[in-house]
Design a protein around this nucleic acid. Structure first.
Lengths: 127, 127
DNA sequence: GCAAACATACGAATGATTTCGTAAAACAAA
DNA sequence: TTTGTTTTACGAAATCATTCGTATGTTTGC
């Protein structure tokens, strides 16, 4: 699968991942909070995403119900990979340094990262 | 400065950051290795970037010499911030988990990250 | 039933990025 | 000088994403 959602599409995907199956109106109402947008604009975008198979929809009732057709995990993974290639010439750790360096990270997040690092350490020793 | 280079522009910036001041032909030759592109296309892009002040150029000799006018550090920082907002709803650690989880990271990179984490730990205790 | 509200579909305008053809100027070699 | 090569400049086409107006059909409430 060769997928690259645009920025607008990603906004919609984020909403659907968070809220689960939703109508255009549902999505539009969330979208409206953070940006100016007409209803038909949101509709059109979701129709295009449906054409591209980014979304599937249930047309049983008049208000179609849309669902994301690609997983959040996988999509984020692809986007991160592409981003690392584009911006950091393929060096994941460079990205990590940037991300940690410039952002405030709280105790819990830090612990999660430390834990992951510990696991990676372990795996490295086993080689 | 509110700058957001496009993907094509970023490719060119990467080359200039790596190679330093270069002519259009220099850049184009590097670009050609990884993608199909006409010379005038590269030229036009660099001219546009010059208009946008992303590049500066020395017009002394016939072949103008272009130099990146924004720092790699700063640009990467801005791009990372935007990326984290778009894709991970602002959570830097989520990005880090993705990046570390899906990519092979070597010992040295891992050590750098550990070191940075240790410093962050320290700072947190001092609050 | 009828009007108002709501939904989809469609086409087209807008805007931004990318691509490239062509012309003119500078230079190089014969 | 003349011819061929290299460069810049310019304009416009092609592409893609985004936005929205309008038509049409469905449902709801009176």
């Amino acid at each position: 699968m060769e997928l690259k959602p645009t920025d607008s599409e990603l906004e919609i995907l984020n909403i659907l991942w968070e809220k689960g199956p939703s109508t255009v109106r549902d999505v539009h109402e969330v979208l409206e909070r953070s940006k100016e947008a007409g209803y038909t604009t949101t509709l059109k975008l979701m129709q295009i995403m449906h054409d591209k198979k980014l979304l599937i929809r249930d047309e049983t009732s008049r208000s179609h119900i849309y669902t994301a057709n690609i997983s959040q995990q996988k999509t984020q993974g692809q986007l991160v990979k592409k981003f690392i290639d584009n911006v950091f010439n393929g060096s994941a750790s460079q990205l990590v340094l940037q991300a940690l360096g410039n952002h405030k990270t709280n105790r819990q997040e830090l612990d999660e990262i430390k834990q992951l690092l510990a696991e990676m350490e372990k795996k490295m020793k086993h080689r």
